[in-house]
Write a protein that binds this DNA or RNA. Sequence first.
DNA 1: CTTCCACAGGAACCAGCGGACC
DNA 2: GGTCCGCTGGTTCCTGTGGAAG
Length: 415
Amino acid sequence: MDKDILSEYFENYIETETFFKNRKVLQASYMPDTIIHRDGEIKTIAGILAPALKNDLPSNLFIYGKTGTGKTLTVKRVTTQMENIAKKKKIPLKAIYINCKLRNVADTEYRLIAEIAKELKEDIKENLSEEEEKELKIHKTGVATTEIYDIFKNVAERNGKTILLILDEIDELVKKIGDEILYNLTRLNADLSNSQFSIIGISNNLTFAETLEPRVKSSLGEEDLIFPPYNALQIQQILKERSSLAFTEESVQIGVVEKCSAYAARDHGDARRALDLLRVAAEVAEREGSEKVMIKHIDVAETKIERDKVMDIVKSQPKQFQATLYSILTVTNKDNSFFTGDVYETYKKVTTLCGLRPLTQRRISDIIVEFDTLGLINAQVMSKGRYGRTRRISLSLPSTIGPRIQKILEESLGM
DNA sequence: CTTCCACAGGAACCAGCGGACC
DNA sequence: GGTCCGCTGGTTCCTGTGGAAG
């Protein structure tokens, strides 16, 4: 494109009537004014946490529910509301929201405590002298974990509030570093006199509590609450509401919202998926220059979402992981049911081909498991009797994108 | 009933990095 | 500059095991 055409394109772009009124409404981070179909849950949570407004310590609360059932949204809504009231009435209350899955933020004990301490410090930072500021400096690394605990306690005591500590995706944290951390957290109040903590754990995994040690389980799960999946009708209503905010009138074909809802309700009532689907469908329609979002765009959107997700994962993997995946794909071409040993044999050839230092089979075995949890492959432990115990591996991707992935990997590995 | 394969997967350990602190 | 720390991404060594074959 030369300059004139380019500027013309942009000018056109600005002037083109888009059917979006407010596209942010369809994004995952959007916080709606009203949460529909969660009245009961809101009331329950509010009831459990309300004592905090009288400076009493609420019970620890545990919330379960699959993805896209509104857990995070609901908890955030209730706690921010409480913070607002607290501010108005000068009640010492604070809510801290932490997503434990975020890499390099709260995925280790040290980082989690540091993160909480940081939040608490933010509150009192204007009252700190230069000296104190220095003393309470929160380092990213380099000091002992016990030291960060000391700083944390210090900051918490000065803060002197009732703190609602929301730990989202807490199951991920425990999976990574064990449940010791939760035990430490529940015992926090014993060491503090001026402030108090109430823990709200949010988990996508419904059986999470079963894996915990009994003492942790009982103190953390004083109260628990399950968020059931939305049914098809509820998803539809949620989607209708959002789409009326997101799009200008008449820009969505009749049946589009219904179909998006049906797709999302099909497996487990994931509202987020429904919203993603609608958003991407609209983007597809927009790029196509269509004046309406139509049903056909949904199908395109569905494959696009799936494909983009896979491609993003593949591209962002480290070299060794890519080599492993490449080996798996290569073996798949010959045989569609194979085992760890087969992959490792091929992997070794692949590494010599692209000049990579081969890792041990132990490590490759772990990498295979990681691909399984990412959902790219299926890897199940099985026994071949006389011929040993191993993992049966198969691709869990539509076969059409296999070759595309292989091509990308070849490029990335320099083969 | 026993044997024995081909790994699974736990545990301990290590190297190297970036950073704190003296 | 030496010693401490956390964290990652490995290795080494190991014990455990489902079930077909004998």
